[in-house]
Amino acid sequence: MTAPLQRSEAPGDAGVPLADAPTPVGVLRRRAGTGHTASLYVGGAIAAVLVATALLSLFVHLGDPNATDLLGRLHSPDGAHLAGTDELGRDILARLVRGVRWSLGIGTIATAIAVTIGATLGTIGAWRPGIVRTLMVRSTDIGISFPFLVIAVVIVAVVGHGFWPLTLTLGVVAWPTMARVIYAQARGLCEREYVLAARLAGVGGLRSLLTHVLPPLVPHLQVMAAFTFADLLVAESGLSFLGLGAPLGEATWGNMLSASRAYLIQAPWMMLGPATAIVLAVLAANLVGDGLTARDHAKRSRSAA
């Protein structure tokens, strides 16, 4: 009575992974190409360079971001200072490099905070109906509608400037959106029949969540993390620009951008440096996010039967 192992069959008739009825969806579901790899590689490459720079600067002296040289201020880029000098004669390139550590550091940690809080709350809200779900949904709503700048101002006022206050602010601001997206995805997953089957077989709640609900969420988390990182990077720069982030004088891209305002005509390179850095970093994050999304779609449509 052994049945030969065969590829799965759809309840309909088609012998290939296509829609049964000739609806437009069938037309769109072509075999996915490899367009996503370009985004992934380019974004990944840029990110790798940035990360490598940050790590390297921890061990190798790549120029002193704080060495002032009042005689050599506002010099355009030349052999000695590849990106020029700022209003205090400090080497812009060295400051950009120091800024990488700051930006990547804050971006990564804040994203990690947002992902952890958001994913946990989102999943719990999806799993447990009733008061728990209501609480989670409402707090997410509140979190999303709270003005971002108000939170930043409050935190700075209470805790002061610096790396950790800034990280905290950004983490607090980013988790609601993450929670909402994960909640939406998890709702669908929790309702899958195989989850019910597991529960009816005596599999406990936590175990079901970990084995059945969480794994399919990972691609979503990755994509969300990439885009959140990009958003937080811009937000951090904005906050520093407004004076709510890094302490004055600290070499961060936002600060540098802020300082460059006064010297826009005289020394445009002061603005170009940090602007380019921000753009590159955000571009990298978005490319990686795009690439991950496309790869996930490709995987999904290839396995749809």
Binding site: G12, D13, A14, G15, V16, V27, R30
Partner: peptide, 22 residues
């Protein structure tokens, strides 16, 4: 009459010229 994989639906679609583009 046919079961899964028999091709009956495809045959029907071909009569109306609405088989999938591939």
């Amino acid at each position: 009459v046919g079961e899964s994989g028999s091709g009956k639906t495809m045959l029907g679609l071909s009569m109306l010229g609405i088989t999938p583009p591939t």
